[in-house]
Design a protein around this nucleic acid. Structure first.
Lengths: 330, 330
DNA sequence: ATTAGTTGTGCAAGCGATTGCATGATATTG
DNA sequence: CAATATCATGCAATCGCTTGCACAACTAAT
């Protein structure tokens, strides 16, 4: 058996509750007693059993991050992994563990189990899981949605990048650079963030609207856009829903020997490491997923500590201007 | 307070130990009793407190995945995230949680805490953390290293892709395609897997050896290889340590108008989603990170169930032949 | 010197399950 | 039909820690 708190107590010549108090830095304990306890802990190589602690204290010291990943692709999505890194960092500072769980196959049962079986003190959820029945089950359990839910926007607690504003930034920039006919390329038009980006595009655009959906792959973007570029009245600029679409577009332009940025300008959402190294480098609406994760985790801990209720945090996006859209000399 | 096992027992008119046995499917319980208990559980919306369970049973129902990530980049590394996806899947089937922890800043303290504070029943570790003192601390606690440790290869438990064999595959293929002067491009020459890949390259190569280290970025690979390609006696083929190096190489060839695969052949390790869409598409030594995670998790659970001791599992790699190395007509 | 207020520590009752042992009720066997 | 084995269930200890309450010792105020 492992070393317990009473072993330490015995060795230090005190009661186990005193040891507990020393561990948790509670109440007033004589410096001398403290030192005796610490010495005993060190001598016995004592590590408190976190399960027993949690059971007694009612706090489990873990938060859950739920993903909605049908395949490895979605999971390795760098959006997710960067947020996760940030979340883990915040949790570590707080002395919390991070539990990840894929909720894709389970229709809310993953979330329920994490919560009701007392495995976590709080949850970070993907927007796709939000629905009225889940929210009812959650009750006042601390959670934060990472992204804007499609329903219950006002009644839930979430952190998101401002996708509308991102499109606005992109379109404005392209207009300033003198592009006239700006199209929106890519994205599953059913997903919330795409809808919001398209909405921002529509709101800001002055000329003719053109929305070109894709299935999310580079290949599909390539073939789809190829046709469009061959037309006479082709757009002279594109806002791309993601880097995949942009890569496809780059390839199509290369194929047709269309020069970038002089003939066609490109701005893309998301900042893949590779976006900097394409030819030419891509102008990007930077979605700072690290910050997103950080903010979500901070907010979650505030809720766990009962220091706030539902909140909606919208982070603004930044434009990183690179060659793909710089038609005007600086 | 939450619903407890004794509430259920009371409602079902049985003892709490009976309820416990029903939950755990233990011993022989009358069908009728079982049904009464199930009904009571449903009526009260009972969820067993996993903390109390773990404390009593001695099993925590979680495994830990330790990462060694200094920055978000390393963390979002798709190698890691794909493995993680697979690990989570295996764990979920077993009813286990997955705890992730970044051990980068803590010099083994993360691992020690996870293990000794009874937070997990087993650990999946990165090869970089392996050293004699850690192994001593671990003792016979179940763990699996994901990758080959640089030290203690024979005395630890790990799962890895066969990097040497991967290089062998690559070089052989290039030789078959008639390339004569094959160079090895990229990689931090201090990292274990790079060393093993280079070893495989050296072993299989017949002509002149040429090893070109890079700092891992596309940019560095580009500038480094540009110089080399301008020389007269440049290599006519490259084995790239990773996709980043290959992207840099592609860019350099394009710049110098060197045709691929007729003038220069390329094979690269790792299978980024993008590798299929480059121009030309890259021939790849496929590192199946999903399988790696799957095998590691399976092995870990075997160890947790005490069904095996240290084991070393080496998965062989596959070559995915695409245009970048196909000089001969098929 | 008496009273009141701190302070440091011990006692013991939880937290919510699991599980070995005991027991009474059935089933099996000669 | 007595004796034995098997089955279904209850009792109570246990897992290792936290924490409210009690209390003695000491300080400060009147």
């Amino acid at each position: 058996m492992a070393v317990t708190i009473s072993d330490v107590a015995k060795l230090a010549g005190v009661n186990s509750s005193t040891v507990s108090r020393v561990i948790n830095g509670k109440a007033s304990i004589t410096q001398e007693t403290k030192e005796r306890v610490y010495a005993a802990m060190k001598e016995l190589d004592f590590h408190p059993n976190s399960l027993a602690r949690s059971l007694a204290s009612g706090l489990c010291g873990a938060i859950g991050v739920v993903v909605d990943a049908r395949d490895a692709e979605a999971f390795s999505n760098f959006f997710f992994s960067r947020s996760l890194f940030a979340i883990e960092q915040v949790a570590q500072e707080k002395g919390y563990q991070v539990i990840i769980a894929n909720g894709a196959q389970s229709k809310g049962r993953t979330i329920e189990s994490l919560m009701k079986e007392r495995k976590v003190d709080g949850l970070i959820l993907p927007p796709t899981t939000v629905n009225p029945s889940l929210m009812e089950a959650i009750g006042d359990f601390p959670y934060v949605v990472l992204g804007t839910p499609d329903t219950l926007r006002g009644a839930t607690c979430w952190v998101d990048n401002n996708n509308e504003q991102g499109s606005d930034l992109a379109v404005h920039h392209l207009q300033e650079q003198g592009y006239q006919h700006i199209a929106y390329l890519g994205g599953n038009q059913k997903r919330g963030f795409t809808i919001r980006r398209v909405r921002g595009y529509k709101k800001t655009i002055t000329g003719e609207e053109l929305i070109i959906p894709t299935d999310g792959t580079t290949e599909n973007a390539y073939s789809t856009v190829l046709e469009i570029l061959e037309k006479k009245d082709r757009p002279d600029a594109f806002v791309c829903n993601d880097n995949m679409a942009a890569f496809g577009l780059l390839k199509a332009c290369k194929k047709l020997k269309i020069r970038i940025p002089s003939e066609v300008g490109i701005v893309a959402f998301d900042n893949y490491p590779l976006a900097e190294y394409t030819d030419p480098p891509l102008t990007i609406v930077d979605i700072d997923t690290g910050m997103l994760g950080d903010q979500a985790a901070q907010l979650l801990f505030r809720r766990i500590d009962k220091r706030c209720g539902n909140q909606q945090i919208m982070l603004s996006t930044n434009l990183i201007v690179r060659e793909s859209s710089e038609r005007l000399a600086k």
